[in-house]
Structures are given as C-alpha cells and as structure tokens.
C-alpha cells in the first residue's frame, strides 16, 4: 500500500518533468500526428491489402501511427530519458533515499503507459475527425485494449533494458533511434509490407515485436482477425526485456 502510494506520487512528479521538458513532450506528441499527415498526403491514395482485406489508406496509417506513438512513448522515451537521468546522477541519488528502486521504475513505466494511452486516443480521434478512419469499438475494443496494454508494458520493459546498452547520454538519441527506426520500416509501420515483400524483410518482421504489435493494434481498427499469437510474441519480448534489464540495468552513470 505504501509502495503504491509512493509510486503514484512519483508518477505525478514524472509527469511534471515530462511536460516541462519541451523536447520530450513535443516530439512524443507531435511526431505521430505529423507522420500521419505526411504519409497520408505523400503516398498514393487507395486501399491497402491486409490479410486478404482491403483497408482505406488513411485507416491503415491511423492504426500504424497509433502503434508508432505507443512505441515512441514507451520504448524511445524511456530508453532516452532514463539514460539521461542515469547519466545526470539522478538515479544514483534516488538510490540513496528510502524510495525503493522498484517504485521509481514502476512510476516511469506507469507514466509512459498513460502517455501511450493518451496518444492512442489523440491519434484515433484525429484520424476519425480528419480522415474519417474507422476506430475500434465493441468487442474488438476489448482485444485492442489487451494488445495496447501488453504492448505498452513490453516496450517499456525493452526501453529499460535498452538503457543498459547505451554508453552515455550523448549517445542515447543515436543508439536508441538506430535500434528502433530500421525495425519500424521493416515492420510495415510507415510503408505497408505484404506477401510480395522480400523474404528477409518478412522474416525480420516475424521475429521482432513491432510488426506483431502493429497487427494486433490494427485488428481493432480494420476488423482483421485478431491473433493471440501476436500478443504472445510481444509479451515474450517484454519478458525478455525484463530479464535483460534485471541483470544489466545500472543506477549509476556508466563510464
């Protein structure tokens, strides 16, 4: 109970610093919408074929940008800001107080998941308003919510694990982006991939969690079949991230 109280209090402070940091707040919130506008304007209008179904290009991008925003808020945001806090000595200082490390990390994860939820709502509302995109409702909404929560938690866990591979704060943007950007392209987040895409790309998409997460999210928007397998793969990556993080996570600046 005390741990919960400490965690929720920590969430409030995390939120305060998040919104006061212009870079983190702006990019986390502006990028998904910006990309949504760019991609829907840039690429040829028409339908995208997903699992034998034709979906409106705009709906396709609303779903994918929703997935992208979760990945940004959870994976990218956590990997970078926790690295910054580690290198600034804030994590080390926190370790010198009675606040349990678990409460600190839980607060970071909880906050990122709340931001992710907010972003998905904004992206879906934006898509509905300007592109008349279909948005999840009814029974699909529940399954969509499961994918969203599992995915957000898993990408937070991977973000925390990633901090242990970032040598210092200066390297954080480069290392974190290098780890996620190629994967976003290879997983069809920005440009659709399908049966005609090169085999290696389809393999990459099958192994890593981004594609599975995007498909699970899309099912809510498109009405395509929802595969529990996708949830399992994403969850497995999340558990993997947790194991790596538990072994390698550092509270002190790495030199």
């Amino acid at each position: 109970m005390k741990l919960l109280r400490l965690t929720l209090r920590q969430v409030r402070y995390t939120n305060k610093t998040f919104w006061r940091n212009p870079a983190s707040a702006f990019f986390t919130f502006a990028f998904p919408l910006m990309f949504l506008v760019i991609f829907t304007s840039l690429l040829p209008k028409g339908d995208v074929q997903i699992a034998g179904l034709f979906v409106k290009q705009s709906t396709y991008y609303v779903a994918n940008m929703a997935a992208f925003s979760v990945i940004t808020a959870c994976y990218t945001n956590i990997a970078m800001s926790v690295t910054f806090q580690r290198d600034a000595g804030i994590l080390k200082r926190t370790q010198g107080t009675p606040l349990p490390g678990s409460a600190y990390l839980a607060a970071r994860v909880l906050h990122a998941m709340l931001m992710a939820l907010l972003l998905v709502v904004i992206t879906a509302a934006f898509g509905r308003l300007f592109y008349n995109a279909d948005i999840p409702a009814g029974g699909t909404l529940l399954r969509f919510a499961v994918m969203l929560i599992v995915g957000a938690a898993a990408f937070c866990s991977l973000g925390l694990a990633m901090t242990s591979f970032v040598p210092n704060a200066e390297a954080a943007p480069a290392v974190v982006n290098a780890s996620i950007l190629p994967l976003l392209f290879l997983s069809g987040i920005f440009i659709p991939i399908g049966d005609t895409s090169p085999a290696w790309i389809r393999w990459v998409a099958r192994i890593f969690p981004v594609r599975h997460f995007a498909l699970g999210m899309s099912a809510g928007f498109f009405g395509t079949p929802f595969e529990w397998k996708d949830v399992l793969v994403v969850a497995a990556w999340g558990v993997g991230g947790l194991l790596v993080g538990a072994r390698r996570f550092s509270w002190e600046p790495r030199r």
């Binding site: 400490l6 209090r9 402070y13 305060k16 610093t17 006061r20 940091n21 806090q85 600034a88 000595g89 804030i90 994590l91 080390k92 200082r93 010198g96 107080t97 009675p98 606040l99």
Partner: peptide
C-alpha cells in the same frame, strides 16, 4: 536510508522542477 543524508560528489537534480518542488519530492520519501 531513511536515517542518512547523502551529498554525492557530483550533483544530479532534475532540471525541470523548482527548488521547492525538488525538496518536496525528496521529503516525501
């Protein structure tokens, strides 16, 4: 940890909180 106070060799404070908010944040622990 509740009974000791630590000033580390290098400072590490969140830049976006105010002085009073910072102290309040830590007092709460």
């Amino acid at each position: 940890k509740a009974r000791i106070g630590i000033v580390l060799q290098s400072t590490g404070i969140d830049p976006y909180l105010t002085v009073a908010e910072t102290v309040a944040l830590y007092s709460g622990y």
